[in-house]
Design a protein around this nucleic acid. Sequence first.
DNA 1: GAATTGACGGGGC
DNA 2: AGCCCCGCCAATT
Length: 129
Amino acid sequence: MNDRDYRLYQKIYTVVREIPPGQVASYGDIARIVGGGCEAREVGYALNEIPKQGGQDVPWQRVVNKEGGISTRGLLQRELLIAEGVGFGANERIDMRRFRWRGPDAAWAAAHGCEMLPPDADAEQLSLF
DNA sequence: GAATTGACGGGGC
DNA sequence: AGCCCCGCCAATT
């Protein structure tokens, strides 16, 4: 991995660290927040590198796929999320409307050169209740 | 260096 | 809801 990738990975980790406990974000969400042409798969690769880099402070378990499911082998990620209060529904799926992170605030995004998450119409509907 | 793979997403059916 | 296919691009073989 070259230096540019390393810095990109660090930026990804910085964003992931902003996910509050008890909430989750999708790989695509993280990629969009990071911006700069970052893509969902690259986020997955970055998270995969965490164990090699000793990034113990990165809450990687809060990053799931867009369906609210986990793709990692083993059940560790599921256990960690349940311990934080993230509930799994039928078919081992997280209710993204309830637990999806809405993204960083504008000040943080600006300070770190990141993008805001586009408003989710579905989530907006939920807030009306 | 070509082919394959993958902790993904979106669109179509 | 599920399933399939394509695009994406870094990492690996």
